[in-house]
Nucleic acid binder design. Sequence first.
DNA 1: ACCATAGGCAAGTGAATGCTTGCATGACAA
DNA 2: TTGTCATGCAAGCATTCACTTGCCTATGGT
Lengths: 101, 101
Amino acid sequence: MGDDVFRALADPTRRRILDELAERDGQSLFELCGRLATRHGLGLSRQAVSQHLAVLEAADLVRTRREGRYKFHDLNTAPLERILNRWLRPDVPGSTACGST
Amino acid sequence: MGDDVFRALADPTRRRILDELAERDGQSLFELCGRLATRHGLGLSRQAVSQHLAVLEAADLVRTRREGRYKFHDLNTAPLERILNRWLRPDVPGSTACGST
DNA sequence: ACCATAGGCAAGTGAATGCTTGCATGACAA
DNA sequence: TTGTCATGCAAGCATTCACTTGCCTATGGT
């Protein structure tokens, strides 16, 4: 476990998506496309962003909720908190649970 | 800055190398090869590990010091500490410095 | 000097990755 | 129902990446 998290964080575009969601939770796919374009200068297709979101969701870094035909995305920092302790604080209780990733 | 750090952490073998160095600093290339093989079951060539170490060193996650014909590797957690704050504590002073990575 | 040891450099290969293109699905409005 | 909007699925392409192979440098022991 945690493998998907590191892989998800490897791409700079996905990190910018996390930045966007950290600033404003609950954005839809098109909202993210627009903000990545206008604020970060990234001219990505809708599918490109969709695939990035799928990777982030698989890593549990992004939670989604459907409402009608919209799908809203929320940032989930729990996997990040679990990962830090691996090398930074190796003797915190619970940090050994992800030691074999 | 920080881009190399995420890329370096993306590979599971490199993460195991960091585990090894976290447990015992100052290992040489051959030492790491041996311990990755015996303790993690990874049958990697010397060059494979060497290239991984080069990536980790480029990301400043590993510091090296030469002594004679030996080259010892030490873990450096500073880049990790800088990265945490990006999404976990966005309002800590100094965390804005790596916001555009 | 000789040889073994520790490490470095560079080209080549197979697999994974990011992105595109095209078509399909489901929800809402007219 | 018909059309449109938001999203999903899948194949194809170009790049990147991890690993190997082969040769080279340098240090230390004998």
